[in-house]
């Protein structure tokens, strides 16, 4: 045995997984996505951010002897021995066409675009399958009673993977309906930020033109100097009412 402090690579244990019915031996430490690549698959689609937010790599799997269907994002879920899986990067769902700016933001518009909303039977298969743990059934229930704001809030974590639609016995495209609710909520129901309008008016009135011009005309050395020497740093323990001494550009 070596006496040096050199680290030795520990070989990961290999476990069997089944991808679309075919068995592969993969290291047990990998995510499903890495395991698939390890097994020789090359992603052209069905893979996006690799960070758990884009919704491109939703995966369904089962475990031996268990009736339950499990879901996860391939890029986030670690493989388990004997799991059998397939990725469902896309699931076809009715997607209504609308001119968003022609909408007024009332529930009836959603009802008209997605009448199938009313075919929900509250079986909850959608919430159970959601890899993001969104209470899908609850936002559909909220929409059925016209509560767009609640639907927008409950569906906020949706990554549009479409697994809900794949399991829906009412054949609803939940994720598209939820997206419309969030759009309407953002554009029509959430109060406008009044300070933003004030700020835009200030900018347009030229309040910051001089400051910006000064920066724009500065050369690299000057910019470095301004940034490292002249800039007044906010103290680590600054109170809420702290403002810099130099406030011409505020």
């Amino acid at each position: 045995m070596s006496t040096t402090t050199e680290q030795t690579a520990v070989e990961a244990k290999m476990i069997p997984i089944y991808v679309m019915g075919k068995k592969y031996e993969v290291p047990e430490t990998l995510t499903i996505m890495k395991a698939l690549e390890y097994a020789g698959y090359k992603y052209i689609r069905g893979c996006g951010c690799r960070g758990g937010v884009c919704g491109a790599c939703s995966t369904v799997y089962r475990k031996p002897g268990d009736y339950k269907i499990y879901t996860g994002l391939a890029c986030q879920t670690v493989v388990e021995p004997e799991m059998y899986l397939t990725q469902l990067p896309f699931y076809p769902a009715n997607r209504a066409t609308y001119d968003f700016h022609a909408l007024e933001g009332n529930p009836e518009e959603i009802f008209g675009l997605y009448p199938e909303l009313f075919r929900c039977v509250a079986c909850n298969a959608c919430s159970k399958v959601c890899p993001m743990d969104v209470e899908v059934m609850d936002y559909i229930a909220a929409l059925k009673r016209g509560d767009i704001a609640a639907a927008a809030q409950i569906s906020f974590d949706c990554i549009q993977c479409g697994l809900c639609a794949s399991r829906c016995m009412g054949e609803l495209p939940q994720y598209h309906i939820g997206q419309l609710a969030r759009r309407i909520n953002g554009a029509y129901l959430t109060p406008r930020a009044e300070h933003l309008a004030t700020m835009v008016a200030n900018i347009e009135a030229g309040r910051y033109t001089e400051c910006l011009n000064k920066l724009k005309s500065a050369d690299e050395d000057e910019l470095k100097r301004l940034y490292t020497e002249e800039r007044e740093l906010e103290p680590a323990q600054a109170g809420e009412d702290w403002t810099p001494k130099e406030n011409v550009c505020l």
């Binding site: 509250a122 909850n124 059934m137 229930a141 016995m169």
Partner: peptide, 25 residues
């Protein structure tokens, strides 16, 4: 604080329980 649509009409088919799930919930 939390409720879903009851389904409006009660299922009249003896072998159909899925439509009873909503009101039971």
């Amino acid at each position: 604080p939390r409720w879903n649509c009851c389904g409006a009409v009660y299922s009249l088919a003896d072998d159909d329980l899925i439509h009873v799930v909503a009101p039971v919930r």
